[in-house]
């Protein structure tokens, strides 16, 4: 456990957890990545994790810059490959905690196959996948998450491809912890990220964030407030969804049927790769 006193203010949090030499961040006004970093730091603080024993790993893209902002061991790797490097770190030294920051393009696009297999192995790590529906760093090209009809610099007439539900993939592969949140409400994601970090095995937390620069403005959502409003109108808390589907009127059910469910989608126990490997070594070691 950390010997540091538990910080009480955002300023103290910044001083304890952020790498000052890396400030200011590269993020645009209204970007949701700062919120995600903030929530992650509160979660770490809540758990009183010893930062010396945490490695933050990331790939390439706006979200992947987050690993450099935390004052801990960090690895900013190649595009889409963060989970491969993270798997090597965790498998070689299971005592380290591994937290991965990735994006929708990095984690589910170019890194999709690594995501699939890292979940399948149930590597013990927390993956915070920040989904802004677009390739932000390169200036707004369509992503595997861009909605049908979504406008981007490479879908100038509207996106014809079906988007990907990343949490559904993680659920299908039996990840022990899967959650999806928007940045609108800070407290549930903080609690959820803390649960993910504490979970043994693979934890996926998908954070839906605004990208006013590369996505919002081009798609009729001018300014960050418009995107936050869009999230409010188009998502429903999983608990509310289940309650309404059971007890609500037909009109209420009709209204939420097609909304995106946010909340903890799964929280269960499953032995991790590292635990299973350690048992195997115990059995066969000379």
């Amino acid at each position: 456990m950390s010997t540091l006193l538990k910080p009480k203010t955002a300023a103290e949090l910044r001083d304890v957890y952020l790498r000052q030499e890396m400030m200011p961040t590269i993020f645009c006004d209204g970007c949701g990545l700062g919120n995600v970093l903030n929530y992650t730091l509160w979660a770490l603080d809540e758990l009183q994790v010893d930062l010396d024993q945490v490695v933050f790993v990331s790939g390439i893209g706006c979200s992947s810059r987050l690993s450099g902002y935390v004052n801990a061991d960090g690895m900013h790797t190649t595009h889409g490959r963060a989970l491969s490097f993270a798997s090597g770190i965790k498998a070689a030294n299971p005592n380290l905690k591994v937290i991965v920051f990735t994006g929708d393009g990095d984690g589910a696009g170019i890194g999709g196959n690594h995501l699939l297999h890292t979940i399948r192995r149930n590597m013990d790590m927390t993956v915070i996948l920040v989904n802004n529906y677009i390739y932000g760093m390169t200036g707004g090209q369509s992503a595997p998450t861009t909605p049908i009809g979504g406008l981007s610099t490479t879908t100038p007439y509207g996106n014809v491809e079906y988007p990907m539900d990343i949490c559904a993939l993680a659920l299908a592969l039996e990840a022990p912890y899967v959650a999806r949140w928007t940045v609108n409400q800070p407290y549930p994601p903080i609690k959820s990220i803390a649960q993910g970090i504490a979970k043994r095995g693979f934890a996926l937390i998908e954070m839906l964030v605004p990208c006013p620069t590369a996505y919002g403005g081009r798609n009729g959502l001018k300014g960050v407030e418009a995107i936050w409003q869009w999230y409010r109108e188009n998502t429903v808390l999983l608990d509310d969804f289940e309650h309404i589907m059971e007890f609500g009127t037909l009109e209420e059910q009709e209204e939420i049927k097609h909304k995106l469910k946010v909340g903890v989608l799964r929280d269960t126990e499953r032995e991790s790769f590292e635990e299973r490997w350690a048992k195997l070594v115990e059995q066969v070691k000379l």
């Binding site: 790993v57 490959r81 491969s84 490097f85 798997s87 090597g88 070689a92």
Partner: peptide
């Protein structure tokens, strides 16, 4: 990728 990650431990 895994090689590089492991080597840094």
């Amino acid at each position: 990728g895994a090689l590089v990650g492991a080597s840094w431990t």
